[in-house]
C-alpha cells in the first residue's frame, strides 16, 4: 500500500522483490530475493512442524506414539521419486502449480528433520 515506505519501514521481502524486479528491472536480484524468501519459509515452517512432533516423540509416551514414529522413520527409506507424480497431481488439483505455496508445502513435511531432532531432544537432560 505504501510501497514499502515510509523509509523502508514496511518493506518486507515479498514487497522488495517486486520493486527490485519490476521497478528497477534488476531481475537477477529479484530472483535472488525470491530464492531467499523461499528458503526462509521452508526452513522456518519445516523446523516448526518437525520440532513439535520431535518433542512429543522424544518426551511423551502415548498410545500409538511408537507406531507413528515408525511411520515417520519409514518415510526416510522411501525414494522421493515415488511421490513425485501424485504430488504434482495433488498440487494441480489444488491450483497451486507455479506458486510459492506449491513449492513450499511439499517440502515442509520432513521426516528427516523430525527423526534427527527427536534424537537431539532425547540427549537434553530433563529438568527435575
Amino acid at each position: 500500500m505504501t510501497k514499502g515506505g515510509p523509509a523502508g519501514a514496511t518493506d518486507m521481502i515479498a514487497n522488495m522483490l517486486y520493486s527490485v524486479g519490476f521497478t528497477l528491472f534488476d531481475i537477477g536480484q529479484g530472483s535472488a530475493l525470491a530464492v531467499i524468501l523461499f528458503v526462509f519459509l521452508i526452513a522456518l515452517a519445516g523446523i516448526a512442524v518437525a520440532t513439535m512432533a520431535a518433542y512429543a516423540f522424544a518426551r511423551d509416551r502415548f498410545p500409538g506414539g511408537n507406531l507413528a514414529f515408525a511411520a515417520v522413520v519409514a518415510t526416510l527409506m522411501i525414494p522421493s521419486h515415488i511421490t513425485r507424480i501424485p504430488n504434482y497431481l495433488t498440487l494441480a488439483k489444488a491450483g497451486l502449480l507455479d506458486s510459492y505455496a506449491g513449492l513450499i508445502l511439499p517440502a515442509i513435511s520432513s521426516g528427516f528433520a523430525a527423526v534427527f531432532l527427536r534424537q537431539s531432544i532425547r540427549d537434553i537432560p530433563r529438568a527435575g
Binding site: M52, A53, A56, G65, T75, I78, L89, T90
Partner: peptide, 30 residues
C-alpha cells in the same frame, strides 16, 4: 496431557499423509 502429544505430532503427520503416504498409494494405483 495425552491429547497434547497427539496435537503436537498432528501437523507433521498431516503433511506426511498428504505428501507422502497418500501419494504412495496413488502411485501404486497409477
Amino acid at each position: 496431557r495425552k491429547l497434547t502429544s497427539y496435537l503436537f505430532i498432528l501437523p507433521l503427520m498431516a503433511f506426511l499423509a498428504v505428501f507422502t503416504y497418500v501419494p504412495i498409494l496413488q502411485s501404486v494405483n497409477l
